[in-house]
Simulated assay, not measured.
Amino acid sequence: MASSGVQQDRPRGCTRPMYRLASVVLVAAVLLGTGCETLGSRALRGERGNYNIALQQSNDEQLLLNLVRLRYRDNPVFLDVGNITTQFSLETTLDAGIEAEESAGDIFSLGGGVTYNTSPTIQYTPLSGEDFQQRLMTPLGLDRMLLLYQAGWSLKRVFTVLVQRLNNLENAVRASGPTPGSAPEYETFQQALEAMRGLERLGLLELVQENLLDGEPRSRVVLSLKEGAWDQPQAELLARLLGLSRRKLLYPIIPRGLVQGVDVPQGDYIMVETRSPLGAMFFLSHAVDTPEDDQRTGKVTTTRTNAGQAFDWHDVTSEVFEVKTSAIRPTQASTAVRYRGAWFYIADTNLETKSSFAMLNQLLILQSKPAEAPPPVLTLPVGR
């Protein structure tokens, strides 16, 4: 009698149990091999997202911690994450067996396991040295200020945080360092900013970079008013507060002190004194609330008015920045750090503070590496 088809296909020298066992092993190897091929891509998708979130949270916490340190007059420390490397390891085990019984047929058993491990290595680099400190303490260039404005940050936010003097108007100048003991001048500066913001919302004011083609290519930062701006009361108020020549449309913005000895009407341009990145951090640090015990024991400076009353720094910064404090870990915080036994946090619903925090982070990234020499920002005399 002819043998069955299965018996004909069985390799020579293989008994039926051995043939079935080889088939099981072959199938298992294929399955495990397929798992190895897909494991790498799955690990990349999962681990990259986790590291991305962790790095963002770590950067935010470091920046907030340094702002709190400045409030206490403690030294800030910056650590940069240089490299993140991860080693993936995979261990597989496989157990297979077969029992042959004449009556019940073959009984197969298959078992195994896969163990997946990661070993991350993170390299931290302290940001220090004379070069870094100089960039941190150098007043911001007008090109950088314009870059932040063109990136979408409002003129009011940029000027509030980064400008400490606009012509003769002061924006808490001494706030660019440790918390002063006496209340700052800032009200008239804020009035000028409100006038500028009103015109900006009407689409009648913006900061632009004007290219000059006379001789060598040059450029300057200009406060530009549109046609119809002088029909608005905000323009008249801005001209009065800054001492500007009326009915002009372009006012070059120049660093304070650049035009000394130049015979040009003062009302034809706007002098700006910017803060350094460290000065901007000091300025925002005054908006960090502190525990009453720390205030009472003198661990932080209490600014006072001429009448001897405690000055509220939220009058200067509340519209753009505010950090709360709590004895327990906050539950509704976008960023929170523990320092000196208390929690300091940015409320997740405080969108203005989160925006200013993000802008400050961008500023520090811009200043973390040397910038190319900026182009000239002023050409005098002003012809229009």
Results as ranks from 00 to 15, higher is better:
62 Q>K: 03
26 L>R: 04
17 P>N: 06
7 Q>H: 07
51 Y>R: 07
45 R>S: 15
8 Q>P: 00
17 P>M: 09
94 L>W: 02
23 S>F: 03
88 F>D: 04
8 Q>T: 07
69 R>D: 00
95 D>E: 12
97 G>V: 06
94 L>G: 01
61 E>S: 14
90 L>P: 02
34 T>E: 12
49 G>S: 12
19 Y>K: 04
63 L>G: 06
90 L>Y: 09
101 E>A: 13
33 G>E: 10
15 T>N: 11
98 I>K: 02
28 A>W: 01
106 D>N: 13
37 E>T: 08
96 A>F: 00
78 F>D: 01
23 S>V: 05
26 L>N: 04
27 V>R: 09
101 E>Q: 13
56 Q>K: 11
83 N>W: 00
45 R>W: 09
68 V>K: 08
86 T>M: 09
11 P>E: 15
21 L>E: 07
14 C>D: 13
13 G>P: 01
56 Q>M: 05
47 E>W: 06
46 G>P: 02
88 F>R: 11
98 I>T: 09
41 S>P: 00
51 Y>T: 07
69 R>M: 02
80 D>A: 15
17 P>Q: 11
50 N>F: 00
74 D>H: 14
11 P>H: 15
55 L>C: 08
48 R>E: 10
27 V>S: 09
96 A>W: 01
76 P>R: 03
77 V>Y: 04
9 D>L: 09
46 G>T: 12
93 T>I: 03
86 T>K: 05
15 T>V: 04
48 R>S: 11
22 A>I: 02
59 N>T: 10
22 A>E: 06
21 L>R: 08
6 V>L: 15
13 G>H: 14
73 R>Q: 12
103 S>Y: 10
37 E>W: 10
57 Q>M: 13
19 Y>P: 03
33 G>R: 07
59 N>A: 13
41 S>W: 06
49 G>P: 02
63 L>R: 06
42 R>P: 00
18 M>A: 14
8 Q>S: 08
46 G>L: 14
80 D>V: 05
88 F>C: 02
83 N>G: 01
52 N>M: 11
106 D>L: 15
97 G>K: 01
39 L>K: 01
98 I>F: 03
29 A>W: 00
102 E>N: 13
84 I>C: 09
44 L>W: 05
66 N>Y: 05
32 L>Y: 07
77 V>H: 09
105 G>T: 13
19 Y>V: 06
88 F>S: 06
103 S>F: 08
18 M>P: 00
35 G>W: 02
51 Y>Q: 10
56 Q>T: 07
15 T>K: 04
32 L>N: 05
28 A>V: 09
30 V>N: 07
21 L>C: 00
37 E>K: 08
104 A>G: 12
